[in-house]
Simulated assay, not measured.
Amino acid sequence: MTSIDNTALGPLDKEGRLLNAVLKSETTKSGRFGFRGDIALKFQAQFADEKRPPVYSIEQVLAIAEEGEPTIPVLAGYLHSFAYLPEAAKVLDGRLSPKGSYFMFCNNIDLLAKYRTKVGDITFRILPCDESTVWKEMMDLAGVDKNDIKKLGPAGRLDYLLDAAKDIGGSYSEISYEDGLAKMEPVKNRGENRPV
């Protein structure tokens, strides 16, 4: 049985950062642990024992980690603002590898943009995400058809998709974080145009 404590996700779990889990279990591959949910980046001040939601998180995270390995090989998630990227890199510091595949979908970048942005020695692929989900965007990006995975359980689907994501190529403009910050658009209000 694979325990989260023996993977690169373990320290994040101990810090109470793994929230809203849709999946948080071993997967169909031996020695692998999978997570689908949110990774809290900035916590609110807590009073007494009340639990408050984080100020912001990496949302809709898809991640796998191998037992005994210090780093997460593949991770995809959604940032409500490109400006949160350094915070994400800081929270994940030491848990990502220069050889890993990391995808961040952002609310406030041009809908036609595809960037490669380095924070330290870690490269993130930055992609737009407006009215879709990380799962759907990653399926499209990896060229996985939903019929390929419909007979698999939640853990098997995550394995299949993230194994395919390791080999995603594509042309991305190399851009520094500072340049990306200068180009980013205003953050869209998520509650706008929603029925009350």
Results as ranks from 00 to 15, higher is better:
46 Q>T: 14
78 Y>K: 12
78 Y>C: 04
72 I>D: 04
44 Q>H: 08
28 T>P: 00
101 S>F: 08
169 G>N: 13
10 G>Q: 15
149 I>Y: 05
88 A>I: 01
29 K>Q: 14
113 A>M: 00
193 N>Y: 05
181 L>D: 03
147 N>F: 10
172 Y>F: 14
83 A>W: 07
103 F>I: 05
95 R>N: 07
164 A>M: 12
139 M>S: 13
3 S>R: 04
17 R>C: 02
101 S>N: 11
170 G>H: 02
172 Y>Q: 03
164 A>Q: 12
69 E>P: 06
4 I>W: 14
156 G>F: 03
98 P>S: 07
194 R>G: 09
45 A>R: 14
67 E>N: 09
38 D>R: 13
22 V>M: 02
167 D>Q: 12
126 I>R: 02
90 K>S: 02
159 D>K: 15
13 D>T: 08
154 P>S: 14
149 I>S: 01
165 A>I: 04
32 R>L: 11
174 E>L: 08
182 A>C: 00
24 K>M: 08
69 E>Q: 13
135 W>H: 08
166 K>A: 06
192 E>R: 13
165 A>W: 06
65 A>H: 04
55 V>W: 03
62 L>R: 05
118 K>Q: 10
119 V>G: 11
67 E>H: 05
62 L>C: 05
156 G>D: 15
67 E>W: 00
22 V>T: 12
93 D>G: 07
105 F>W: 14
2 T>Q: 06
114 K>T: 07
62 L>A: 04
122 I>W: 03
138 M>Q: 01
113 A>N: 03
170 G>V: 13
166 K>S: 04
167 D>M: 08
174 E>K: 10
189 N>W: 01
132 S>R: 11
125 R>D: 01
192 E>C: 05
121 D>W: 01
20 N>Y: 02
147 N>S: 12
13 D>R: 15
141 L>Q: 00
1 M>K: 10
151 K>A: 14
